[in-house]
Design a protein around this nucleic acid. Sequence first.
DNA 1: ACAAAAGTGTTGACTTTACACCCATGG
DNA 2: CCATGGGTGTAAAGTCAACACTTTTGT
Lengths: 224, 224
Amino acid sequence: MEVRNKLYKNQGIHVITALFTVEEGITKVLLIKRKNNPFKGDWVLTGGALYNNEDLEEGAYREIKEKTGIENINIKQFKAFGKVNRSPVMRMVAIGFIGVIDWKSVKVLRETKNTSNADWFPIDKIPPLGFDHEEILHDALIQLQKEIVKSNILKSLFPDGVTLPELQKTYEAILNKKFDRRNFRKKMLNLDLIEDTNKVDKFEGNKPAKVYKFKENIKGKDIF
Amino acid sequence: MEVRNKLYKNQGIHVITALFTVEEGITKVLLIKRKNNPFKGDWVLTGGALYNNEDLEEGAYREIKEKTGIENINIKQFKAFGKVNRSPVMRMVAIGFIGVIDWKSVKVLRETKNTSNADWFPIDKIPPLGFDHEEILHDALIQLQKEIVKSNILKSLFPDGVTLPELQKTYEAILNKKFDRRNFRKKMLNLDLIEDTNKVDKFEGNKPAKVYKFKENIKGKDIF
DNA sequence: ACAAAAGTGTTGACTTTACACCCATGG
DNA sequence: CCATGGGTGTAAAGTCAACACTTTTGT
């Protein structure tokens, strides 16, 4: 259908993903530099316009792949952003996603026709962002903090499994808190997010540590 | 801007609210009957097209007021729905909200130019719905169940405060579970959602019960 | 005085927190 | 053999689930 009514003609949808990683105990987010107007030269989160022939998640995946070359990650929709003037060009509503990825597995951050650069930024050193992406990133980080205690969203950070000391350092980075080693272990195993493998690996010390992996299906715990 | 590219021209945004109430221990949702195509004659959730001059929440409020006459409620955005063919007319993405309202305070369910009827339906007796509103309602109910244990979303159900037996019956209706009276009381007061008033009121028995009210600002409890 | 619902407290099971010592390995 | 981080147990405090009797009021 061709829209005539000025009240709601010329609307569009953005799919925007805050892609996080944790590197050496530092939480980082992937930003790309815009090559075109609006916000030419500004850093923004990964994303762009949704196509008519794709579902929301598909669009987000496509944008991630187009702008960064990254494939095969899990993302989770968390909120829509729709302030009237969030885009200077036309009325756009953004559907926000979060995703987590192992920075070691990202080989290529592509130069594409829409982006001139892409890089990981520590979340406490974020440059000014275009559109309303500072707001989206802020909410995305809060959502990430909620997700990691009730889902396997961190699974993709550790494709080969993870040791508990390594996992603890990751949680401490994302939640910005320190934990007791013994209690963290008990809590993690109790949350039912991870399970033992028979492997061991070395993290920071010389003593090999047991390797765990995130479960496929998580059943959250209820308050009532 | 006028959109030319066929990949993303003619898109639009719906704002859809699942408006709940609890009446006599039965959880109900407000449905309206469509007067026009598409889905003429079908029941749907409250909502419609977002205008260019309003934020998402404003649009949801306007639709609620236009279609039902209801004003002054709290709503909360919970999820976006964007399957390619969710609207047969053109590409529409729906932003879903939930809201709760005291059925006693709804005097008029209006006949408007777009709706021929509106009524509360028990959630286990929902007729076939137009668009993807069955999916939206399903997710909305799950969200409502999560919200009531961590926010004051039920506040608007009880504008004059609520007794604990009444509140318990409400929780049991929404969560579809029974609770022990003493433990429910302890849990509720511990969740820090409600506070004592000095009033008493009668609910089902002859003995007056203490009246509580929902707090304005809720600080949720953390798992870590 | 009786019926009907409101209010209240305790115990045992479990969970959470705080805390300190030994272990395995590489150099 | 020593330095580094990995692994483990316990006791005290707090939380949660199960359970029964007394109180208030209307009729």
